[in-house]
Design a protein around this nucleic acid. Sequence first.
DNA 1: CCCCGCTATGATACCCGTAACATACATAAT
DNA 2: ATTATGTATGTTACGGGTATCATAGCGGGG
Lengths: 357, 357
Amino acid sequence: MAEKDRDVLTREEGAVRRGFGPTMAEVAALAGVTKMTVSRVLRQPQKVNPDTRERVSSAMASLGYVPNRLAGSLTSGATGLIAAIVPTLRHSIFADVLEGLSDVISDAGLDLFVSFSSYRTDVEEGQIHSILERRPDGLVLTGLTHTIASREILRSFGVPVVETWETSEAPIDMMVGFSNRDAAHAMTSELIRAGYRRIAFVNGSPRNNERARLRAEGYLTAIAEAGLSAPPIHVVEHDADIGPEIGGRALMAVRQQTPDVDAIFFTSDIFAVGAILACRELGIGVPDQIGIAGFHDLEIGRVVSPTLTTVHVPAIEMGRKAGHMLLGRLSNASASPGRHDLGFSLVLRESARRTKG
Amino acid sequence: MAEKDRDVLTREEGAVRRGFGPTMAEVAALAGVTKMTVSRVLRQPQKVNPDTRERVSSAMASLGYVPNRLAGSLTSGATGLIAAIVPTLRHSIFADVLEGLSDVISDAGLDLFVSFSSYRTDVEEGQIHSILERRPDGLVLTGLTHTIASREILRSFGVPVVETWETSEAPIDMMVGFSNRDAAHAMTSELIRAGYRRIAFVNGSPRNNERARLRAEGYLTAIAEAGLSAPPIHVVEHDADIGPEIGGRALMAVRQQTPDVDAIFFTSDIFAVGAILACRELGIGVPDQIGIAGFHDLEIGRVVSPTLTTVHVPAIEMGRKAGHMLLGRLSNASASPGRHDLGFSLVLRESARRTKG
DNA sequence: CCCCGCTATGATACCCGTAACATACATAAT
DNA sequence: ATTATGTATGTTACGGGTATCATAGCGGGG
């Protein structure tokens, strides 16, 4: 009662509301109950008498009440927020992960919060700090390469974390992905099987990115196993602004350095497609004169001519699995960390299908 | 002092912390100041004596303090959160808007919060409610078509809202985009200029989407102005799961219904590219036997052969502009609503470049 | 030497909910 | 009739910050 009066008084004094809309106290006053009952109508309706519930509901409706989750989360300790950091959305590689993730968590009533790191771990570190200030219930990171400070703060904070896109190393917490090393190894072996002998590899920078490093390992191993020699790996330094032109330029650079190259394995379809277009312009025959393979299985690889041989990665599935892992942890705090290998598959299309050897 | 003691006491009693990490009060105790001074070190460092500042900073560092923004936002009324609702990330159309938006707002220290509506206004309405519970500082919506309830709650709540992808109608608040009608009109006129006379239009469902409706208007107007007649518009019902195959099927359906069709204007590059691939398989010559045009200017249109004639839309710019509009409003609450037409451009490539008339 | 104004810091109240416990009845079990 | 068991609602005390106003110390002008 005291509370109700106080609140009515506040309104009558004409206090200007800083925030938006009416508060739970106002709804309570209108319905003739306390805040606690209003809160129950929202969280545990079955614990409220149907008549009361109805009165409260119509009070909420008539005032246009929208609960303030900031306040709720402050006490309850749960924000219902999942944060994700991806390098970029410029191509669908990481967008698919977000779609899968969103799909799963939104069914559980959680919301998604996104940051773009531009492939930079230092940027990522700042974003992690900023994200933790919002106390998310979980975090999804891209890759396993993070600054030491990032790993430490995440560990000490104890937030559930899922790292994606790899599976072999020691994660901060949970992990879902596939073996980039095996995938690169498999594709390289496939190129060899198809008859190529002088196979170059165009990679992203392995400096801030374990995917690139592991793919290089897989490539080199496969080459060595076949008793072949590997031309120097061509490293493409890039930020988020990736485009096919880069692949075209890489093609020319590789051919200049290694004139007898007969196949190029690109670390991304984006580059591989650029190389195919460049070959078309330069009159270089794909796949006979040069074989081209990519990574990611993007739509452009299906659309280009000749169609692109590539590695299919389980992007959507990684997002979905990451979501399920977080949900599992949230409903059972002591759930085991969990590491999941979702595998990959080779997609053999025209660009590396040699018709004559 | 009293406060400090109380807090130390709490710690000594061994109270288990529900949330994460140390609180501002603990930092204050360690530094021998009050919470208020710690707060100032974070928000207005220049108001704190350098010595004190240093003591507080090292206390924060040694405890691994991460401020709780939920608590801060509750009082300050600002969350530093911008929410965006897009239909999907399946193709880069909307992803580009998010990139542009994120780019601008993250420089201002704001974070991004994303929901996927799957092109459904009823889903969007639920998401708007959920979003408002988090009290974002601003909201970016895709398109102008929203449920009445959505428009009402947003208006009454008074959050800054930017609607995107159109420019001609009455927005909830602010708006940035281009004229879908004019764009469709321009492309249709271009097809006519190029010599096509029996031009079909393949559209998305105009039911929940003013973009589709306005593009149809532009198309029909251009056809009428040229004294031609329009074949029945082929409507593709789709959800977020859009793929090129849909375009291939649409091509066959249109050719069946209108055998003398000599050009098809698709409402998205995704469909147009699918049609080009289908034509290749069916042995239909593009652009001579049939002209194909798309919308959006996606990368696949640059990569497919023949390359795709399309409408370039200012996706990244819309995102950036939306960000700037929100920032403007946040720094000056009375800033005018603002409507911005960013225009479009035709990209004439091979798929509608007739070599013989 | 007094008052002014500025700087640095503190005290207090409050933001808007929820957890946890208390209370008031009503009904069921003994 | 008495106690146990529920059900419906209220009371109280925070959660972890920030706005606001108060206060102490200090140099300068008259």
